[in-house]
């Protein structure tokens, strides 16, 4: 294959898709910060930010502007390269997940059928694992490079928390994989879309619960927001950060949230499946659009759920967090796996 024979059109198409998704994610993340404040306010009987623009809708831009305009501080004794690399790594790891998420079914433009998924690789879930396991580096490097004891402690906490919950996360997913028999997110979604099949949440309520809890921990969301525990660790691993580097950390967290929600929607809630609607009866583009909206509705619901939980449940103590992860979640996930396996065998009549 020579360089010229490369499918440049496909390349361009994917590039555009990547750009769209990345910028969309950033935009959504931007508005998620706003939503966080709004949801917090509503849950606390307050109106929330409402000054910048109608209903305060320009607030995120104001926030962003503030972050960008702030003075860039790099501590003297910090490791400069890694100090800058840290937020970048966090951001990259957060954004990499979106590559395998099927955002919707195909659309047709100018006679080209375009898959609304960046890469339908057949080890999609493993890829997600890989990316999630890489997400630790941003935190660790940032925390270490700050040359600050509190940052380091928070980073180590964050890393060990992420690693601990990654195990249970993976184990809970295995049950889903056993059901679907595929590692490709697309085929998992499409299997749930089959007429007669229900969403995986019906088959895997326990698995979903475990996955959800682990996701909370992976995204460092309350009640697992130990790494950035303000009142214990002075704001956590990004304590020395300011300006847009801090913004990157915060953003990456929200992007992580979005991606986790998307994965969760795909794995357990049928992805872009619209319940009680036969998509094949619609035109391709319409089905894709509606599906995209459905997926987004699910994502938004999950994000709301994250926030709702954040403003309800107090933070765990560190030992409680570890106990929960290792002594409850992992055994529970193993049990779920066993149960699923037994049920599959039973159903298969073995």
């Amino acid at each position: 294959m020579s360089l010229l024979a490369f499918d440049w059109l496909l390349f361009a198409e994917k590039l555009i898709l990547i750009a769209i998704i990345v910028f969309a994610s950033l935009g959504i993340a931007l508005y998620t910060t706003f939503a966080e404040r709004k949801v917090a306010a509503v849950l606390q009987d307050r109106p929330g930010p409402n000054r910048a623009g109608p209903l305060g809708l320009f607030q995120p831009f104001a926030d962003g502007l503030k972050l960008i305009m702030k003075e860039e501080i790099i501590p003297n004794s910090s490791n400069k390269i890694l100090f800058i690399l840290g937020p970048g790594l966090a951001m990259t790891a957060a954004l990499m997940t979106c590559a395998v998420i099927p955002w919707s079914s195909r659309v047709e433009f100018f006679g080209r059928s375009i898959e609304l998924q960046i890469a339908d690789i057949n080890i999609g879930i493993l890829y997600i694992f890989g990316v999630v396991s890489l997400g630790v580096y941003g935190i660790m490097i940032g925390g270490w490079a700050s040359n600050n004891k509190f940052s380091l402690m928070a980073a180590l906490r964050g890393a060990s928390q992420a690693i601990s919950y990654e195990l249970a996360l993976g184990l809970s997913l295995i049950a889903v994989l056993m059901l679907s028999g595929s590692l490709s997110l697309k085929s998992i979604v499409e299997e749930q879309m089959q007429p007669g099949n229900y969403w995986n949440i019906v088959y895997q309520p326990l698995g979903f619960l475990i996955y959800f809890i682990c996701t909370l921990a992976e995204c460092n969301r309350t009640p697992f927001d130990l790494p950035e525990a303000e009142n214990e660790l002075n704001f956590g691993y990004h304590q020395e950060y300011s300006s847009m580097k801090l913004g990157f950390y915060l953003f990456s967290e929200y992007i992580n949230m979005i991606m986790s929600s998307a994965v969760m929607a795909c794995l357990f809630f049928g992805g872009y499946d619209i319940p009680f609607l036969d998509e094949s009866s619609l035109s391709t583009n319409l089905a894709a659009g509606l599906g995209f909206l459905a997926l987004f509705a699910k994502i938004i619901f999950f994000i709301f759920l994250f926030m709702w939980i954040r403003w309800t449940i107090p933070r765990f103590r560190y030992d409680q967090l570890m106990n929960l992860g290792w002594k409850n979640m992992i055994p529970l996930a193993l049990f779920n796996m066993l149960l699923t396996g037994a049920l599959i065998l039973w159903k298969a009549g073995v």
Binding site: L43, D45, R46, P47, N50, T312, I313
Partner: peptide, 21 residues
């Protein structure tokens, strides 16, 4: 108890806001 707590917070969405603009 978690669900109970979440139900409490959720119910606050529909409470009247005491805020004075």
């Amino acid at each position: 108890s978690i669900f109970k707590g979440m139900a409490i917070t959720f119910s606050h969405i529909f409470k009247k806001q005491p805020t004075i603009r």
